[in-house]
């Protein structure tokens, strides 16, 4: 009897899953994840072979197009600022008093030695614009039921031809993501956790990134405080602000 109930439940959830259009799921995720603007402080712990380093920073962003980050610690990185406008990225280094545009091959460099490249941070186009998504089953991750979305690129100029995203089917936040090469080889993996509710939206506050081809334990990204819908002065998103 019990078994029947379980399988019934499974069928129902499957039906439900099909009913949910993959694009709609992504849209709901988007509502959670993106915002008019936000200000957050974060720590990034890079687990290297010879010990780990933690970098703290404060970021401001408006929509997906404008972002400004200032590094707070350690002392060496303090005052380093990063400005992203559309698809351009500048870094200001206080020790040299230089603002340098990160472009071309430099975008492929890792951010502060992490498993994340500048380029990974740069692509701000909506997933739904780049990929056609299909729901590919459901899985349970750490007690949460998720949909497994498979995203296949529908435009050519994307870094990853395929993504797999596990989305919490109650809270509409991603819990896990895998990035694949065209050949299907797994390149990067990220796992989200510490999901909290702020201003009525669910938001993951910790992410572990891992470059699957490289040795090491990956990079842990934690949001220590986050505020949505703040008033951010427009001048912050200018190159002049980098030098201040």
């Amino acid at each position: 009897m019990k078994r029947i109930v379980y399988s019934l439940l499974a069928i129902i959830s499957f039906l439900d899953l099909n009913a949910q259009n993959a694009d709609e799921i992504l849209k709901k995720v988007d509502q959670n994840m993106s915002s008019e603007n936000r200000v957050f402080e974060s720590t990034m712990t890079i687990n290297g072979k010879r010990g780990s380093r933690t970098i703290t920073s404060k970021s401001y962003s408006i929509g997906d197009k404008k972002a400004f980050t200032e590094y707070l610690s350690p002392a060496r990185e303090q005052g380093t600022k990063m400005l992203k406008l559309e698809n351009q990225l500048w870094i200001y280094s206080p020790s040299t008093d230089r603002t340098i545009q990160i472009s071309g091959h430099m975008l492929r460099q890792s951010v502060m030695g992490s498993d994340l490249s500048y380029e990974d941070m740069m692509d701000d186009r909506k997933l739904t614009d780049l990929y056609s998504a299909t729901v590919n089953g459901s899985e349970n991750i750490d007690g949460r039921n998720t949909w497994v979305l498979e995203l296949n690129a529908k435009v050519t100029d994307v870094a990853y031809a395929k993504r797999k995203i596990w989305i919490d089917n109650e809270r509409y936040v991603p819990l896990r993501e895998e990035l694949f090469a065209k050949s299907g080889q797994l390149l990067k993996q990220s796992a989200m956790g510490n999901i909290i509710k702020i201003d009525g939206r669910w938001f993951p506050t910790s992410i572990v990134y891992k470059d699957m081809l490289k040795q090491g334990d990956g990079t842990e990204f934690k949001i220590t405080s986050i505020k949505f819908n703040q008033v951010i002065p427009e001048y912050i998103f200018t190159k002049a602000a980098l030098k201040k």
Binding site: I46, G48, R53, I55, R76, E77, I91, S93, S95, T96, D97, R98, I100, M106, Q109, S110, V111, M112, G113, S114
Partner: peptide, 16 residues
């Protein structure tokens, strides 16, 4: 000139 390199830890490094 500015040297843009990589620190031991892998951060981007700038030095004039």
């Amino acid at each position: 000139v500015t040297l843009i390199g990589s620190t031991m830890g892998g951060s981007m490094a700038f030095y004039n």
